[in-house]
C-alpha cells in the first residue's frame, strides 16, 4: 500500500512539475520568422489629440464609473487622468516605459497594490512602440510576442490591433480587447484580469 502511495505521489509530482513547466502557448499558432522590429499600438499615439472615454471599473463586486482622459505628451510619456462623472480627479499619472509619476491619487485608492496594478495595466495600454521577440501566424491573425511576455494580436485583413494578452509565462494574466474601425482609434476597450477580480472598460463618448 505504501509503495503504491509513493508511486502515486511520485507520478503526480512529476506530472505537476511537467504541467507547470509548460510555458504559455497560443493554441493553433505557428511560429514564423520575424522581420518586424517593433509592433505598434496606435490607439493612444496621436499627440495632438485628447483621448476621452467613459469608464466602468468592476473590482471585487464593486462598481465604479467615471471618465478616462489620456494625452501623449512626447515620444515616451503619456499623461492619464481618471475622474468621477462629476469631474473630480481620482488618479493623475504620468507613465512611460520606465517611469511612473503619480501627480494625484484619491485617498481611498492610495494603496500600493492598486497603484502597481493600474500602473502595469495603463503602461501596457498606452505604450506605442513594443519590441518584437517572436512572430506567430494563426488563421487571419499575426501574433507578436514582445518583452514582458506580452502578445499583440493583429488582424491581417484590417491591420487593426485586436488584442493584447499579458501572460505570466504560463497562463493568461490580463487580456486587453480593442474594438476598432481603424488602426488609430478604438471605440471600445476592455481590460480583463484573470488572477484578480478586476475588469476595466472604456467606451468612446459620442457628442
Amino acid at each position: 500500500m505504501q509503495k503504491l502511495m509513493m508511486r502515486y505521489l511520485l507520478i503526480s509530482t512529476f506530472f505537476c512539475l511537467f504541467l507547470s513547466c509548460k510555458s504559455y502557448q497560443i493554441p493553433d499558432a505557428v511560429e514564423v520568422e520575424n522581420t518586424l522590429p517593433v509592433v505598434q499600438n496606435q490607439y493612444f499615439s496621436d499627440a495632438s489629440l485628447d483621448y476621452v472615454y467613459k469608464t466602468h471599473i468592476e473590482i471585487y463586486g464593486n462598481d465604479m464609473s467615471g471618465i478616462f482622459i489620456v494625452k501623449r505628451m512626447n515620444d515616451s510619456i503619456h499623461r492619464m487622468v481618471l475622474t468621477t462623472d462629476f469631474g473630480n480627479k481620482l488618479l493623475d499619472f504620468e507613465i512611460s516605459k520606465n517611469t511612473f509619476k503619480v501627480n494625484y491619487v484619491f485617498d481611498k485608492l492610495d494603496k500600493k497594490i492598486i497603484l502597481n496594478t493600474l500602473r502595469d495595466d495603463f503602461r501596457t495600454l498606452l505604450q506605442v512602440n513594443n519590441k518584437v521577440l517572436k512572430k506567430y501566424n494563426r488563421n487571419n491573425e499575426t501574433i507578436y510576442r514582445t518583452e514582458n511576455n506580452q502578445y499583440y494580436y493583429i488582424d491581417l485583413i484590417t491591420n487593426n490591433l485586436n488584442k493584447i494578452i499579458k501572460t505570466n509565462k504560463r497562463k493568461e494574466k490580463v487580456i486587453f480587447t480593442f474594438n476598432s474601425k481603424k488602426t488609430t482609434f478604438a471605440e471600445n476597450i476592455s481590460i480583463q484580469h484573470h488572477n484578480i477580480k478586476l475588469k476595466i472598460e472604456f467606451n468612446q463618448i459620442i457628442n
Binding site: 495632438s48 489629440l49 485628447d50 476621452v52 471618465i67 482622459i69 494625452k71 505628451m73 499623461r79 487622468v81 475622474t83 469631474g87
Partner: peptide, 13 residues
C-alpha cells in the same frame, strides 16, 4: 454647463 479644465489638455471637456 460644466467645463473641466486641465492644463495638459488641448480642449476643455
Amino acid at each position: 454647463v460644466q467645463i473641466k479644465h486641465m492644463d495638459f489638455l488641448t480642449k476643455d471637456i
